[in-house]
Design a binder for these strands. Structure first.
Lengths: 365, 365
DNA sequence: CAGTTCGATGAAAGCGCTGTCAAAAGGCCC
DNA sequence: GGGCCTTTTGACAGCGCTTTCATCGAACTG
């Protein structure tokens, strides 16, 4: 049995009230007494019982992060960012996956968790009606992670996919002098793909470049699929000033491999760029030009917003948009552009954490 | 304010004891009364306060998983497996990273968490003295995840690296008829690398194959490093019946890319195999023959052991060893062996979760 | 019909903590 | 020396729940 506050009190020869005061609002107690109590605490290795404390204080200093899935690079980054920030702010983070539960139970599950966590950061994958329900059922603060901007009723963090894709497009058109750009996205229904495609179209239009319907392809974000598809098409794609803009790094990697296998040189015969700046982006030859998506930062921001709301429940919802950052490596370059013969390192060695610009939107009251 | 047990009692016209009984040992209460109470609970959307409950029961139904880091494929798998199992068993999983904290505070941190979690699964990266300290300070059950087998004092799960590496070596020697095998490991100090290298030496010896000191290389598990190193050495490695056994998939991938860039054909001119069966293994051309390490299962097992100990605190420590599984793809094959011209799919499409054999060691009392 | 057992329920004692209130002790003023 | 602060401390009432023990009919026994 662990020591209780009473044990400490007895040992320090004071009442439990005094011990409690030492634990909380320290200045209210005489210096000598405090020292006695602190010694007792140390000697007994005393730690306040979290449950008793929570019962009185009605808070647990715990936050939950609910993700569609726990697998994969992106989520792992998100978790890491959220976890670090949580720790920094003195919270403990509970992580849950909603994918593994059927849709109906997702909610139930959160409710179960409710009461033990002070706040919830939820990443909503499917845009079902559950969202609203979730928000209203819960009595604790919720922040939407990468949710569509519709959810303005609660705090939210999003990645500005559009600006990331636009930056890439401008790089391709302006710096690499690409004239024909083939867009390889995920499923048409995919929200991110849609955003990136939108940016693609806009940029092409702005640059007065023609967009052939054949140059807009929807696959499934998988390496293998992209490899197979590219194996058939890649010869038709090659040419100076031509480039494939894949909506994620894995597909980009598959396309590079297919191009290489077909005897093409990347980037000389065909440029290939990706999106995400995952680990994969450093595991292609040549290293992949891509867009860094600040997942870790998004996790951190979510936790931060949660903490802020906990501190001030009445403030109006904040909306934070994180800007991805273009990472130029070597998988696309201007035609005729000299490259070192040894594989050069990334020119932007590492995107600095917190580099993406954060803008706080006008507070919607 | 959420409804309390008293509200329910009032509404159902019973005492709180009865409500509590309905909540816990249901059979002790009359059917009609129970129904009344259950209705009241539903109507009020009542949920027992976790803190009050925890205060009495001295348990929270929460488990913690402490990892050296939260980043990367392996940890993400581990977390996922642990999380799913935890949920299945009715626990909530708290995840923490010890790497982000300096070494001294790691312990403190666990102590802080103590009291709110019922049990702890810890993966110890550095073999510092802290381990013992940690175990003794904590009063809750601990299971060692992938810890060296020394820690027989508590339950533990490990991956049997050795048997995985041996299976690979036997495949290379027997099935692929390799005569010269180059071992590319991580740092010499790395525990896993040492195990795998041990298996390598043994297998070579058993097969009566010579081991040149030049063919044992220690790098750092990174793609880039392996790529660079291989770029210089790969010509010397090539030859029929020659194969590189990389201690992880990333290095294998780098080596394949280097070989390809040097004009070699994999596997015809040089076989390359990896270890881990991470996502990367499906993102090489040809797809990588490798060893599947059941991380997800390890996470699940850790949680399971924890739950078992919680149920029966006095049973003797269990020791579970998980056997990795050889995954034969196409990056190494017998010389002259016919391959399809289209990139074939993995012959073992997907290692089934829970496929690795689990053997429970003799219980050390 | 008194005595006994049994199922169903309620009253109340905590669990370990916080926070309110009051009391005690000391200092100051007039 | 009495009145009135101020500082420091203790007593104690909960927080919402579980659990023990007592109670109370009803059913059963002889």
């Amino acid at each position: 049995m662990a020591a209780s506050i009473e044990d400490v009190a007895r040992r320090a020869n004071v009442s439990i009230s005094t011990v409690s005061r030492v634990l909380n609002r320290r200045n209210l107690v005489n210096a000598q007494t405090r020292e006695r109590v602190e010694n007792a605490i140390a000697e007994l290795n005393y730690r306040p019982n979290v449950f008793a404390r929570g019962l009185m204080l009605r808070k647990s200093e715990m936050l939950a992060l609910v993700l569609p899935d726990l697998h994969g690079e992106f989520y792992s980054e998100l978790i890491r960012g959220a976890n670090n920030k949580a720790r920094e702010l003195g919270y403990v983070l509970v992580i849950a996956s909603s994918r593994d539960l059927d849709d109906g139970r997702e909610l139930v599950d959160d409710l179960q968790r409710r009461g033990i966590v002070d706040g919830l950061a939820v990443m909503i994958s499917e845009r079902t009606g559950h969202t609203a329900e979730l928000l209203s059922e819960l009595r604790i603060p919720v922040v939407a992670v990468d949710g569509a901007a519709e959810e303005r009723r609660c705090d939210s963090v999003v990645i500005d996919q559009r600006s990331g894709a636009t930056a890439m497009m401008e790089h391709l058109i302006r710096d690499c002098r690409c004239r024909r750009i083939i867009f390889v996205g995920g499923l048409e229904t995919n929200f991110d793909t849609a955003e990136r495609l939108g940016a693609y179209r806009e940029a092409m239009l702005r640059a007065n470049l023609p967009v052939s319907p054949d140059d807009i392809i929807h696959l499934d974000y998988q390496y293998e699929t992209a490899y197979r598809f590219a194996t058939e098409r890649v010869r038709g794609w090659s040419g100076p000033g031509n480039c494939v803009f894949a909506a994620n790094d894995e597909m980009a990697s598959g396309i590079i491999d297919a191009a290489t296998a077909a005897g093409l040189r990347v980037p000389d015969d065909l440029g290939v760029v990706g999106f995400g700046d995952t680990r994969v982006a450093r595991m292609t030859r040549p290293p992949l030009t891509t867009v860094h998506v600040p997942m870790s930062q998004m996790g951190a921001t979510a936790v931060e917003l949660l903490a802020q709301r906990l501190a001030d429940p009445d403030r109006s919802p904040a909306f934070v948009s994180l800007t991805p950052q273009l990472i130029v490596r070597d998988s696309c370059s201007a035609p005729g552009h000299k490259r070192l013969s040894t594989p050069p390192r990334a020119r932007h060695p590492k995107p600095v954490e917190g580099d993406g610009k954060v803008k706080r939107a006008e507070e919607t009251a």
